[in-house]
Design a protein around this nucleic acid. Structure first.
Length: 298
DNA sequence: TGATTAATAT
DNA sequence: CATATTAATC
């Protein structure tokens, strides 16, 4: 029985984007529209106060950071220098707040779906996700939230249903769905077990084997400023800007880390954003999702 | 100010 | 590991 596991596992792992593929992605990731939207000082387009919070254009991009790859936490303040002040505990490994972007959540769900509720433990999930910077605590915290969401949805959409996750808005709870609503929720999770059906949980639900070719070239427009990557805000927020295209200016999905804690040792995290094709036909909301991809090391 | 998310503690 | 609570952020 376990043999099968290896099967999908291997497959799953295999489809992981090779470093080579995602490498070039870092730059050609932003779409002209996005860049334009951001770069263009369009007074007409008044962004919401919250959203516009993080704009890009790092005021002072560290020259040392030649690494074009976008990563998570990156140098906040280099020790050493000047120091000063004192307010920032030199050696406090305070982990910055992690923002679970829909894409990241998608990966999370995918991992859980493939692991099965049985093995859907924070540790396994984290390992399977292989997302750099992601720790067990993060996953654990999110996992419980995820469960709650499923529980709520289960109670509401009991029986039926099935389908529609995004379009319908079955369980629309303003407090639970915020993040999850946009993510595909494998129905398998809702298995109440009530049926007493010990059946196999690991099944490929919404897993979409994207075997299609890598990122399609789309840069066929005016020159667009190379934006994206990490944006250091005066606020002390590290924002990674990379997104394909969004429908409404309201929803903006961008992974952001709040307040850098300061990675101790060389924590260069080869996290690379990859554009994954979202399920087709999911609502008219054809939005390209950006998935953070791993590095294979954890 | 309130609401939600994520981190943290138990 | 799961749950509950607290803190931070939007």
């Amino acid at each position: 029985m376990r043999e099968e596991d290896s099967n999908w596992f291997s497959k799953w792992e295999e489809e992981l984007p090779s470093p080579e593929e995602l490498m070039p992605l870092s730059q050609t990731l932003i779409t002209p529209d996005l860049a334009m939207a951001f770069d263009i000082p369009n007074p007409s387009t008044n962004h919401s106060p919250q959203l516009l919070h993080q704009t890009l254009t790092p005021p002072a991009p560290p020259p040392s950071n030649n690494n074009n790859s976008s990563e998570f936490v990156d140098s906040a303040e280099l020790g050493g220098g000047g120091g000063s002040g004192g307010d920032e505990p030199a050696r406090t490994l305070k982990r910055p707040r992690l923002v679970w972007t829909p894409q990241l959540h998608k990966r999370f769900v995918d991992a859980v779906a493939h692991l099965g509720i049985k093995n859907a433990v924070p540790k396994t999930i984290m390992q399977l996700m292989s997302v750099d910077g992601l720790t067990r605590e993060n996953v654990a915290s999110h996992l419980q939230k995820y469960r709650l969401y499923l529980k709520r949805m289960q109670g509401i959409s009991s029986g039926g249903g099935g389908g529609g996750v995004a379009g319908g808005g079955i369980g629309s709870d303003p407090a639970t769905d915020h993040l999850f609503a946009s993510s595909p929720v494998p129905a398998h999770f809702l298995h109440p077990g009530g049926g007493g059906r010990p059946g196999p949980d690991h099944f490929l639900p919404t897993f979409v084997p994207y075997h299609h070719h890598p990122p399609p070239p789309q840069p066929q427009q005016q020159q667009y400023r190379q934006i994206g990557h990490i944006g250091l805000q005066p606020n002390g927020h590290i924002g990674l800007q990379s997104n394909g295209q969004f429908e409404h200016p309201f929803m903006s999905a961008r992974p952001v880390l709040h307040r850098i804690g300061g990675g101790p040792v060389g924590h260069h995290n080869p996290v690379v954003p990859y554009v994954e094709d979202v399920e087709s036909g999911t609502a008219a909301n054809g939005r390209k999702v950006l998935t953070l991809f791993p590095t294979g090391d954890d």
